[in-house]
Amino acid sequence: MASQGTKRSYEQMETDGERQNATEIRASVGKMIDGIGRFYIQMCTELKLSDYEGRLIQNSLTIERMVLSAFDERRNKYLEEHPSAGKDPKKTGGPIYKRVDRKWMRELVLYDKEEIRRIWRQANNGDDATAGLTHMMIWHSNLNDTTYQRTRALVRTGMDPRMCSLMQGSTLPRRSGAAGAAVKGVGTMVMELIRMIKRGINDRNFWRGENGRKTRSAYERMCNILKGKFQTAAQRAMMDQVRESRNPGNAEIEDLIFLARSALILRGSVAHKSCLPACVYGPAVASGYDFEKEGYSLVGIDPFKLLQNSQVYSLIRPNENPAHKSQLVWMACNSAAFEDLRVLSFIRGTKVSPRGKLSTRGVQIASNENMDAMESSTLELRSRYWAIRTRSGGNTNQQRASAGQISVQPAFSVQRNLPFDKPTIMAAFTGNTEGRTSDMRAEIIRMMEGAKPEEMSFQGRGVFELSDERAANPIVPSFDMSNEGSYFFGDNAEEYDN
């Protein structure tokens, strides 16, 4: 993207840094990872977990959730003011799984939030270390993106479920800051804005008074975040219109849905970061690795190297396929839920299948599930090659597409044709070009129609051997075009429920 120079890199967003050079960025990201790792080690000690239990991804998720809940100030305040039966607002906890007599047992633990905050700050040299908290939120978000298709949420806001490739980060909490905003897809931002506008339509006082002023500035800020994701002048001009509207209503909703559809071809720039579970960072720190000293990046080879040398386990339900569970977590670790499966298959070195073909449910185990038949197995999170994460949407291309997802959002900077089903997408653009945004709409449609099938995206960008740390010898991959490109292809993934 041309304006790259004016933006802070995501590592800076990730670490609240002012302008830093590459070495400083690597050190501050490393410091953040160190903090998460030290916190995780301490929690495993508190909970008396064995090494194996500490490497269980379900335990990692519970521990991450506990610290996120302990620092969720708004919710904590709300819980104190609106006490609900049987919930102690000062405590947080969740299921911890232990191996007892050759069987997995679930144990519900409860801790004072104050105590968890103390352990977290102690692991982070006394700081609140917001960057580390956001990092864990993005890992949870990436896992949700890989596990669930947001059909219901899309339909509720009037969008087409086939636009799911635009929904990265749709389950990120509001408090995820600049680093969170960077990884949100165009569809996620559109959905947040539509929800806001709908509230304004239904509630006369939404934009009024002292609160209304705050609401208005939040609305304009979200519009600017979305505008910054678009790469064409016409899309940005249309966002200006939406932002400046005196009284946002149905016309703005129409414009936003139009823009979301246009992003299936004229893709937005959305950041991709490899955020790993805390149970990967903990053992690495415990083994003596100093992330701050060595430096770390979320968008280069580092996460690949770390996963190459990590042992992570997962509980497996009786009829689940461990290899499929591994694929789910591998995609989440690489922030690749909406990437082209052919690119992923090449990088991973084994075939990556669409969601609907995987015999696996989510990673988390519900409290009512029976533990008797639970097994555990090693997650295979290694890769054959590594590639640089991208934040450009890439230019655009036609490809055989599917009944489910009709476009992709690249996660890796790797040369390819970008699949999208042009006739299906263009069919949504018939007729409606009147109104105050008509010239911009016409211009956007013209650009979409001009998108050429034979153009290559990320020209000359390749993948790298894991021994090639400096990215000196790019390998331009070859793809098996007979395979499906979309992950949520004609899909039956479970729906995400809060």
Rank of each mutant, 00 (worst) to 15 (best):
A2H: 00
A2F: 00
A2R: 01
G5T: 12
T6M: 02
K7P: 00
S9E: 00
Q12F: 05
Q20M: 03
N21H: 04
T23V: 10
A27Y: 04
A27M: 13
S28N: 15
V29M: 08
K31C: 12
K31E: 14
M32C: 06
D34S: 12
I36K: 04
R38Y: 05
Y40R: 13
I41Y: 09
Q42E: 09
M43W: 02
M43E: 11
M43D: 03
C44Q: 02
L49D: 08
S50K: 12
S50G: 15
D51M: 05
Y52F: 11
Y52E: 10
G54H: 14
R55K: 15
L56W: 02
I57K: 05
I57D: 04
I57S: 03
Q58P: 09
L61T: 10
T62A: 13
E64I: 13
M66K: 11
V67F: 09
E73K: 11
N76G: 03
Y78T: 02
E80W: 07
E81T: 06
H82N: 10
A85I: 11
A85P: 14
K87D: 01
D88L: 01
P89M: 04
R99W: 04
R99Q: 07
V100H: 14
K103D: 07
W104H: 04
M105K: 10
R106W: 11
E107L: 04
Y111D: 06
K113R: 10
R118C: 14
I119K: 03
W120V: 06
W120E: 11
Q122Y: 00
N125Q: 11
A129P: 02
A131D: 05
G132R: 06
G132Q: 08
L133Y: 07
I138F: 10
S141W: 06
S141C: 10
N142W: 09
L143W: 12
L143H: 13
D145P: 03
T147H: 11
Q149I: 06
L154D: 01
V155F: 09
V155Y: 04
G158W: 07
C164V: 14
S165F: 02
S165P: 11
S165N: 15
Q168N: 07
L172E: 03
L172W: 04
L172D: 01
S176D: 04
A178Y: 11
G180L: 03
V183K: 05
K184C: 06
V186E: 05
T188R: 02
R195I: 05
M196F: 07
K198C: 03
R199K: 12
R204T: 04
G209T: 08
N211F: 09
K214D: 00
T215R: 02
T215G: 15
R216T: 13
S217C: 09
S217N: 15
Y219K: 04
Y219A: 07
E220W: 11
E220P: 03
E220D: 15
M222S: 14
L226T: 10
G228E: 13
K229L: 03
T232K: 15
A233D: 05
A234I: 12
A234K: 06
A234P: 15
M238N: 08
M238R: 02
Q241C: 03
Q241D: 10
V242Y: 07
R243S: 05
R243E: 04
E244N: 12
N250T: 09
N250H: 12
N250C: 13
E252T: 00
E254A: 09
D255W: 05
F258E: 08
A260G: 12
R261C: 08
A263D: 01
L264V: 06
L264S: 06
L266W: 11
S269K: 07
V270I: 13
A271Q: 07
K273I: 10
K273G: 04
L276F: 09
L276Y: 08
L276R: 05
A278T: 07
A278F: 08
V280R: 05
Y281R: 08
P283W: 11
P283I: 12
A284N: 07
A284L: 11
A286H: 08
S287D: 10
G288M: 10
G288W: 08
E292P: 14
E292M: 10
E294W: 02
E294I: 03
Y296D: 11
S297H: 05
S297W: 08
L298D: 09
G300Y: 04
I301Y: 13
P303Q: 06
F304P: 05
L306S: 09
L306P: 07
L306D: 10
L307P: 03
L307M: 14
Q308S: 03
Y313C: 09
S314Q: 05
I316E: 03
R317E: 04
R317G: 04
P318S: 14
E320W: 08
N321T: 05
P322H: 07
K325T: 09
S326D: 11
S326V: 10
S326I: 12
A332E: 10
N334F: 03
N334R: 00
S335E: 04
A336F: 00
E339V: 09
E339R: 00
D340A: 03
L341I: 15
R342S: 13
V343S: 12
L344A: 02
I347A: 13
G349R: 06
G349T: 08
T350H: 11
T350I: 05
K351A: 06
K351I: 07
K351L: 13
V352H: 01
S353M: 12
P354D: 06
G356F: 09
G356V: 08
K357W: 04
S359Y: 02
R361F: 04
R361A: 01
Q364G: 01
I365K: 02
I365G: 05
S367T: 15
N368T: 15
E369G: 11
D372K: 11
E375K: 13
S376Q: 06
T378S: 15
T378V: 06
L379I: 13
L379S: 03
L381Y: 02
L381C: 10
L381W: 04
Y385V: 10
W386C: 08
I388V: 08
I388C: 07
I388K: 15
T390K: 04
T390S: 13
R391P: 01
R391M: 03
S392V: 04
Q399C: 08
R400S: 09
A401E: 03
A401R: 15
S402K: 15
A403H: 13
Q405N: 09
I406T: 14
S407P: 00
S407Q: 12
P410I: 00
A411G: 01
A411V: 14
Q415P: 00
Q415H: 04
N417E: 09
P419I: 10
F420T: 13
F420G: 00
T424S: 13
T424V: 14
A427Y: 02
G431I: 13
G431T: 07
E434T: 13
E434G: 06
G435F: 07
T437Y: 01
M440A: 14
A442V: 14
A442P: 00
G450A: 07
K452I: 12
P453K: 11
P453R: 15
E454G: 14
E455K: 08
E455Q: 15
M456C: 12
F458C: 01
Q459R: 15
Q459H: 12
G460L: 12
G460H: 09
V463N: 07
F464C: 02
F464Y: 03
F464D: 07
S467H: 13
S467M: 12
E469F: 00
E469I: 09
A471M: 01
P474H: 01
V476Y: 09
F479A: 09
D480W: 01
M481A: 07
E484M: 07
Y487A: 01
G490D: 02
D491Q: 01
D491M: 14
A493P: 09
A493S: 03
E494L: 03
